[in-house]
Amino acid sequence: MSNSTNYADITRKGLWDNNAALVQLLGLCPLLAVSSSVVNALGLGLATLLVLTTTNTVVSLIRNYVGDAVRLPAFVMIIASAVTCIELLMKAYTYELYQILGLFIPLIVTNCAVLGRADAFASKNNLLPSAIDGFMMGMGFLLVLVLVGAVRELLGTGHLFADMQLLFGESARSWQINVFGADFPNVIFALLPPGAFIVVGFLIAAKNAIDAQLKKRADARKSQTVKGSKRVRTTGNVA
């Protein structure tokens, strides 16, 4: 299998086939708790992405020097160090957003997706594939977070991209889009944790429906190919 095919497979698994939020159902606590707006979801998603990428990269570099007895404790220390660095950066540059996200930043250490990728992939693969795997897994989680945050913010407030200055500075204050106007009857339920459960449930159902449709089309193409091959063999035998 070529390198390009390997990387394409890693990308597809991270973004879709093995998505941490929709398939593995990992990291649901922060996913449901802080995804009430796009800026909150984006802040936590970017932090998780950086932790996954950094952790996979470092674990891949030391994989041949760490024994089985201390492998998992070493991985946890690496994850904790990466989370601490990102936490300090957020305190320095996005302090208000850090206060909103609160405990869920240090809780990235306990996200099973991070330790899982370090143990299942980075500890067995070279640097570049491991870094790409971490980035794509983080990107898949980030995209789901932002999508859930966008749906909940839109239904709950009628607008999108509010308070983006918390992450991107004062120039982003004008990014807010009032989609439905002042007369929109806000669905406050969408901003509550049960609303998050419902939104995530619909996303999982939509993904499963898309996968089923893709599988159906693939099976149909495979069936047509087999029938075509049988016709060719039959024609050849007759001739």
Rank of each mutant, 00 (worst) to 15 (best):
A172L: 06
S174H: 06
Q165V: 03
F121L: 12
N125T: 01
L160A: 09
G116F: 02
I177V: 15
L143N: 03
L147P: 11
R152H: 09
A162F: 08
L128Q: 02
G134M: 02
I177F: 14
A172M: 06
V144K: 04
L145P: 00
R173I: 05
F168N: 05
F135T: 05
G156V: 11
A172Y: 13
A120C: 11
A131M: 15
V179S: 11
F141K: 00
N178C: 08
V146H: 13
Q165L: 02
S130Y: 13
I132M: 13
G116S: 02
G140N: 12
G169K: 07
M164Q: 11
F135Q: 01
S174G: 04
G156C: 07
A118V: 05
M137Q: 14
A172F: 14
A122Y: 10
F135W: 09
E153I: 10
I132D: 01
G138A: 02
V114I: 14
A113T: 13
G156A: 09
L154F: 13
Q165N: 14
S174W: 03
R173G: 07
G116K: 01
W175L: 05
A150R: 06
K124V: 06
L143D: 05
F168D: 05
P129L: 04
A120Q: 14
F168G: 11
L154W: 13
V179H: 11
L127F: 15
G158F: 07
A118L: 04
M136S: 10
N178I: 12
L128M: 12
H159N: 07
A172Q: 11
Q165D: 14
N178H: 15
F121Y: 15
L145W: 09
V148D: 10
M164R: 07
E170N: 14
M139H: 08
M139D: 01
M139P: 06
V179F: 15
F161L: 13
D119P: 00
L147K: 04
S171T: 04
L167E: 03
V144L: 04
E153C: 07
L160N: 09
A162G: 15
M136Q: 12
F135M: 08
N125E: 07
L145A: 15
F121K: 03
N126M: 03
A122V: 08
S123A: 14
V179G: 10
G140W: 11
M139S: 14
A118P: 04
L128D: 02
L143S: 08
M164N: 13
S174Y: 03
F161T: 00
F141R: 00
W175C: 06
G138C: 04
V179A: 07
L127G: 05
K124N: 13
L142S: 06
G134N: 03
L147Q: 08
L142Y: 10
N126H: 10
